[in-house]
Write a protein that binds this DNA or RNA. Structure first.
Length: 478
RNA sequence: UCCUUCUUAGCUCAGUUGGUUAGAGCAUCUGACUGUUAAUCAGAGGGUCCUAGGUUCGAGUCCUAGAGAGGGAGCCA
């Protein structure tokens, strides 16, 4: 008797006619005879055939969708057409019942909205199990990529004492009880009496801390949770999400763009190898979904084609200034189709503009670089023209900005001046300025939203469907 | 936060210009059948039409307010 996972049973024809033992959950039970059994090891089910005439009525009644069962039997070539092997059951035990009257997951199509309300059970469906297996493999591929290249994994703090990271609204962390926060003389909360002795927040980015490690270990990366208290209600924002932030000493913006492109291609490639079954399922799912859309909104590439396209083609690198020229002379701009017309240099690009560049003009991933200094963060390296910074965004079809990065300002005087101009407290970031005082050097890095990468890889349109328990405004169930 | 659409059975939805007792498919239950592939066939049960007001002889349908959800925008990853 050999214990086997469903994935192993389906793969290994060498086990034919052997006695096997398998445990899993019932997906469907047809004709009082056929169990489609899934144990999460693969998107595929194994068919278990029951000799119902020699099985008690009581047991048969308990074989319901969602029930956990233990099955002993013989692996055999299937008589039916839908599968090559199946288990001829000699012994079945129901380990955990599932009342069909109450179990919400039916063997039918459910809306993603409904499944979000059942996030604890939705991973029992084909789509979510596929997405979450891909997410896990992607996560591994991220570490593999950096570890293979001798990057050091840095665990930057989740509770941060600095509120100057400038990446968005922060969640306050306090140990004060309700209505018991001590006040200072001027009536504001006295955080010097709080747990950390100062005001603290959940991190919005590990970048500044990662820089400190890059300036000692050379190559560093973070991969951890980040938090934004923005009231964002979109298909590509979460209040809690996972971010990947490599940071490299002695690397300029060109090296940064090379790294981002190579990284994305590499991890996608490894998923194309390691998640073939799940991607095939997701590819088919998306194709079916697209059929219900009007012709104009359909994608001209399938999911697998899109992934291979990204892996096989160079990202188009375009400076902000070139992009503005292209947009200014574009048809939608001349025909006044843009909600925000492009008139002059210096305007921030709206998502309609990014979409035009990526989806209509270049039809491939685009890296925009050298943005106006005014619309970017204080730590980005000022170019010699005095008006642009060495920033870059990687834009992807469908999901927009997947990467944001920059060469960091390494010159102490220039950085201090920028901080003053942008009203950032130098005292808060004394340690960040120290990096420029002692052994400063050119260095660069970027941030990549992990969930957006999972979205692109799986073809899921809502970011809430690629993280197990999404945190969004007004929602922290589970 | 703004714009917009939606909310009817466990799920997915239909419900005409306001008019009898609000429907279908799937799911569930009962029975039949038994090599099925979202099994099939017959029957049954299942409804605070999101909530609160209002208009009307009459509201699932029209109006007002609120709640929740989806999509888009902004912010960004």
């Amino acid at each position: 008797m050999i214990n086997k996972s469903v994935a192993e049973l389906i793969e290994s024809e060498g086990l034919l006619l052997q006695e096997i033992h398998v445990k899993g959950w019932v997906r469907t039970f047809r004709s009082n005879r056929f169990i489609a059994l899934n144990d999460g090891s693969t998107i595929n089910n194994i068919q278990c055939v029951i000799d119902f005439e020699n099985t008690s009525e009581e047991t048969l009644k308990r074989i319901n969708t969602g029930a956990a069962v233990s099955i002993k039997g013989t692996l055999a070539a299937s008589q039916g057409r839908g599968q090559s092997v199946e288990v001829q059951v000699s012994e079945i035990e129901v380990l955990g019942d599932s009342n069909p009257d109450e179990y919400p997951i039916q063997p039918k199509k459910h809306s993603f909205e409904f499944l979000r309300e059942n996030a604890h059970l939705r991973v029992r469906t084909n789509t979510f199990s596929a997405v979450m297996r891909v997410r896990s493999k992607l996560s591994f591929a991220v570490h593999q990529y950096f570890q293979d290249r001798n990057f050091n994994y840095v665990n930057t703090p989740i509770v941060t004492g600095s509120d100057a990271e400038g990446a968005g609204e922060m969640f306050r962390v306090t140990n004060f009880k309700d209505n018991e926060a001590p006040l200072t003389e001027d009536g504001t909360v006295d955080y010097s009496k709080d747990f950390f002795g100062k005001e603290t927040n959940l991190t919005v980015s590990g970048q500044l801390e990662a820089e400190t490690y890059a300036m000692a270990l050379g190559k560093a990366y973070t991969f951890g949770p980040t938090f934004r208290a923005e009231n964002s209600n979109t298909t590509r924002h979460l209040a809690e999400f996972w971010m990947i932030e490599p940071e490299v000493a002695f690397m300029d913006l060109d090296g940064n763009m090379d790294l981002a492109e190579d990284f994305i291609k590499n991890v996608l490639n490894s998923i194309l190898e390691s998640c073939k079954d799940d991607l095939a399922f997701l590819d088919h799912r998306l194709t079916q979904e697209e059929k219900s859309k009007p012709q104009a909104e359909r994608s001209d590439m399938s999911l697998l084609e899109k992934l291979r396209f990204v892996v096989d083609n160079n990202f188009k690198r375009v400076s902000y200034t070139e992009a503005i020229d292209i947009l200014r002379n574009s048809k939608p701009n001349k025909k006044k189709k843009f909600q925000f017309p492009i008139n002059e240099w210096g305007a921030d690009l709206q998502s309609e503009h990014e979409r035009f560049l990526v989806e209509k003009h270049f039809k491939c991933p685009v890296i925009l670089f050298d943005y106006p200094a005014d619309i970017k963060a204080f730590y980005m390296r000022l170019n010699d023209d005095g008006k642009t910074v060495r920033a870059m965004d990687v834009l992807f079809p469908g999901i927009g900005e997947i990467v944001g990065g920059a060469q960091r300002e390494e010159r102490y005087d220039v950085l201090v001046e920028k901080m003053k101009a942008m009203n950032i407290d130098e005292k808060e970031l004394w340690w960040y300025l120290d990096l420029r005082k002692f052994g400063t050097a050119v260095h660069s890095g970027f941030g990549l939203g992990f969930e957006r990468l999972v979205q692109f890889t799986t073809g899921m349109s809502n970011i809430r469907d690629v993280i197990p328990f999404p945190r969004t405004p007004q929602n922290a169930e589970f």
